[in-house]
Design a protein around this nucleic acid. Structure first.
Lengths: 202, 202, 202, 202
DNA sequence: TATGAATGAGCCTTCATTCAT
DNA sequence: CATGAATGAAGGCTCATTCAT
């Protein structure tokens, strides 16, 4: 029976204010970049005032950090799930590669912001984000090393270089993937996984 | 004969003022980002005054554009040279891949700026830079398609996707390559070329 | 009989909310100044919310005014008591001088706020406070004039100038008196009274 | 012959911009207090824009510090001159006391700002100002101690307490001295010096 | 050629206060 | 009595750019 008390929703949207702000910021940061987007634009897009923004977020930086945290959390969880299966390592790596590509595309705005503006964060938050990102990379690298030890993957290229190579591509997905293009997110994911696994064939 | 008139060189370095400005801007943009670098910082680093900067460059944006033009020119020239050889296509692609990696590393600051700040350009200059960039991609893609037609490369993945995949990695080199690391630029180039060519094995 | 209904006391201290707010505000105003202290800080220090503050006080200014009223009331009462005695005027002046110094030190935070922030009050309240202050000065001056008429005090310096001179010092007590210093409040009071009375010797 | 090149004077006043800014800030700070005066008000009063202010001063704080430095410098110099004479110590102290009162009155705005807003300075500048102020006090105290050793002044009250007592009064001159009152600055100075010296009679 | 004082617009942030619940 | 989300106005400061010299 609907909200019975004031619960941070306004008539203009129905979604709670913090979420509206985050959504507006995400879109604007992705379109114009972090530095080029003013707090004024964000609150106007969200239909609130500056005071409201600073009621929920400590700073413009915080908004950015929140966006990062959201995408990092999702990807880490999904990778953990995939990597924990008992399938052969090649299948697990393929599944992980497809999955990370798909979720990257599904959150293309967040990813774009991530790699364009990560370095705008203050030193402390920057380190934190880098650390989480590194954990993600390491989980992925472990899969590759496992395959190399088993002999199903070539050991010609160091595993960490392979990871950097592959993720580099993912980070740039937002600069060439077009939602209205010929390929679905899944198809792109399959292709990228193909490339990775072929490059790893012994 | 030596310089007979004031020729925009000062005692402090000998290099002409415009080049000093460009060098200072490149370093600062790479370190702090374009938006975070003030014109004041640039002129101080170059040892000149604001008036001098605006004498040689129309705007801060111009500086950025100049940096882009420089790196684009260099890479295009080198790719043209490599691609024009008469060696088998696999060898030409490998040589091109190694070369682009090496020059990217040698101009890591420029590359970093390129991908971090490209979108700061006004629409017109932005289109121009994208067009040049596309020409570069197409030259590279043509090599892959040639190999696919000849059957020496797998046609499983569309050539343009392979190009985007590979260049995505290169664009992120600046975020993981460390000049003081274990691998020389050439070694990294060889590894990346290996990965590309293995991914293209039929 | 004990409190039978909610009476604005909370578990956290037992003291009623308005008093807790006043105490928190006094400490913070003295430490950081009135303008540098936010309402948010005050309510946090008092362990209540903004709504509570505005329930008891009309504005931040009111808080300040309340602090003034408190210190003015205390000092006026004590001066009245001392001055009304039937001792010789020199003794009464000395007692008054000692007393005002002691109470000033005992309420050093209030005094500090008083002289640092008095001018923040709106014109009306400002006039009111100044008037009360003046009444206090006049009471003190009357003692001096009495002594001058009797010939026990020198008349070389106009009484009101002597008052301004002496109170100026008191107002600055908060900037040099240290509770952990060598002198007790009473000792400081005696010294200041000495100085005043010696300056008034014929 | 007047200014031949651009020299930071504008038509609207003739005085250089920094001095105009300082004068405007001094008046406004004295009238309204530091916190209540906005940078916007200052630049409007000086007839320039904010950019100009920040061209000459690093911050609003800097303006304050500059005002302090000015008055501190003047007073220190004059005290040094007076104290260095070869007159008897009582005469030197009297001259110093008169002089400090006169210069305080002559720079009443600066003094007012000084004691109302000193604590607004950042910790570093605050320490610096306090240190200079202390040096001034110590110079004055040395005169009193000299007289006490010679027996021309009473030793009943510790010299540093006498100094704090006397300067406390001076600091509050701005709250009771009226330029349009009956007493000239010099007369006030003489009276205050009288009070001090009488309080120090053995 | 080169200077640097000055502009003017905009930026992020703070804060006392209100009000529906 | 009390909450705390939201407002709205202002505040200090930065910065690319211009222009008289």
């Amino acid at each position: 029976m609907g909200p019975t008390r004031r619960d941070a929703r306004t008539a203009s949207g129905g979604r709670p204010v913090p979420r509206r702000l985050l959504a507006a910021a995400t879109r604007l940061f992705a379109d114009q970049g972090y530095d080029r987007t003013s707090v004024q634009e964000i609150v106007e897009a969200a239909g609130v005032t500056k005071g409201a923004l600073y009621h929920y977020f400590g700073s413009k930086d915080d908004l950015l950090h929140e966006i990062y945290a959201r995408v990092l959390r999702v990807q880490q969880e999904r990778l953990d799930a995939v990597a924990a299966s008992s399938a052969p390592v090649a299948e697990r790596l393929r599944a992980a590669a497809v999955d990370v590509a798909v979720t990257t595309i599904e959150n293309l705005d967040d990813t774009k912001i991530f790699f364009q503006s990560m370095h705008r964060l203050g030193p402390e938050k920057y380190r934190q984000v880098r650390a989480e990102r590194r954990r993600y990379h390491e989980r992925f690298r472990a899969l590759i090393e496992e395959g190399q030890r088993e002999g199903v993957f070539s050991g010609a290229t160091p595993a960490d270089l392979v990871v950097d190579y592959h993720f580099g591509s993912l980070h740039h997905l937002s600069s060439w993937y077009r939602p209205d293009g010929a390929l679905t997110p899944r198809e792109v994911g399959e292709h990228l996984a193909d490339l990775l696994l072929r490059a790893l064939r012994p």
